[in-house]
Amino acid sequence: MDYGRYFDVAALLSGTLPEPPAPTYGTRDDGHALFYAGEVNLVFGDPESGKTWLALAAARELLGEYGNGRVLVIDLDHNGPAATVSRLLSLGSSHSALADRARFLYVEPDDRLHALYIVEDMKQWRPQLVILDSLGELLPLFGSSSNSADEYTTAHSTVLKPLAKTGAAVIAIDHLAKGSDSRTLGPGGTAAKRRTIGGSSLRVRVKDAFTPGKGGSAYLTVNKDRHGGLRRHCPTGDREPLAGIFELQPTEAGTLEAVITAARDGESAPADFAIGARDPVRLSDDVAALNSLNPKPTSKRDVAERMKWGNNRASEALRAWREMHDISRKADHDNVLHLPTGIESEEP
């Protein structure tokens, strides 16, 4: 019998195993960070809330004058190389680091095959940080639906997980669902998105609008933290504790200084943060349960009878489930690009 196939509990009890993981990148002003190396992390929020700026600020830690690391940007949102490099320069990244292909790579995958080549390249290049912008565009690249847990899991296992296995902190950017109930859950689409996050998942909400040349700020709350390395350094008491405030401050040199101010004890996100008073974990589980029904739910009465739930719970879960699917269908219709041959595509 090969005991090497099994976890070494004796090593755990003897104290010879390493400490639980702690976040490494996206450093706050108190020295603690937001994103885990070797894990898939998620940043989600409404458009123009500062999601991409936050991810690029983490990249700048490796690409600045005193940085020494490799960063890959996978641009599926077609922000463009000029805009991406311009943002990195404005944050203080060095010209020499951005021009060095041993330090920085930018790519817009043309199709699924191109994406797979990138994953294989990274096994050799071994980046410290990978930004994938955005998750909603990765799924159409694989001909997958945002609503299918199986299809999302396949895309995750094919791209995101292998990138994290290189040791990189993978920061995937996603959009927040629009409905009042589904916003409680987080990003639009299948609940598998939240389940497969191995690092931290941060909700981003604008505090002061981001304006070119003038900066802006956003609240950051912890939607998920699998290892607890970030949550333990956040105020207690809230379902989604405030991790800090991300701010871009203009400098006299014309650049932008990125600062993540840690939340103080007792500090919370504003009351109008729109997370909702209901339990997001239970609602997420309920939506996932409805998504697994075959045939799909048709009414509140249908849900209540089949799931043995009360009317309020059935109504709340069904409304959130419908909002998720309506938003995801619209996103798939509006944003699908580079589908495999034989599937019609439509420019946004």
Rank of each mutant, 00 (worst) to 15 (best):
T255M: 10
G216Y: 03
R195W: 12
S14F: 01
V281H: 10
Y106H: 11
T236P: 02
E61Y: 07
I74R: 01
R301L: 15
D133I: 05
T24M: 09
A271R: 09
Y117E: 12
R322G: 01
E316H: 05
L318D: 02
A11H: 09
A243H: 03
D150V: 13
D29Y: 06
D121N: 12
S86R: 09
R278P: 00
G167T: 01
S134G: 04
T255K: 13
S90N: 15
E61G: 03
G215Y: 05
R264S: 10
A164E: 01
H78C: 10
P47Y: 13
A262C: 07
M324E: 11
D29C: 09
R28Q: 09
P23L: 10
G50V: 08
F246T: 05
A115L: 13
I343E: 12
R239C: 11
G188P: 02
I74Q: 01
D121G: 05
L256P: 09
S49A: 12
P340F: 06
P81T: 01
E267L: 03
K51H: 12
V107K: 03
N147P: 05
G92F: 08
D225I: 14
N335P: 02
D326V: 14
E108L: 02
T166V: 01
I343H: 10
D208E: 15
A331Q: 07
P20Q: 12
A11W: 06
A274M: 10
A263W: 00
R60Y: 04
A169N: 03
G254T: 06
S217G: 13
Q128H: 13
T211I: 15
E19N: 13
W309L: 09
M1V: 13
G254F: 08
L116K: 13
L76H: 02
R112L: 13
P162N: 00
K300A: 13
M324N: 11
G50I: 14
G216M: 05
E240T: 10
T236E: 07
A115S: 14
P21Y: 08
Y6M: 11
D174G: 14
P162T: 00
N311Y: 08
V222Y: 08
S345T: 12
A274R: 15
N79A: 08
K161A: 15
L17C: 08
D174N: 15
A314W: 11
N147H: 06
R226G: 07
S315R: 10
V43P: 07
G229I: 03
E108I: 03
G45R: 01
V43K: 03
E240Y: 07
V259K: 15
R87Q: 08
D2C: 00
F273D: 12
H114W: 06
E39H: 11
G167C: 05
E120L: 09
H333G: 15
K207N: 14
T154G: 03
D75A: 01
G199V: 07
A274P: 05
P127G: 07
E305M: 15
K224P: 00
A37K: 12
V204T: 10
S268G: 06
L98I: 08
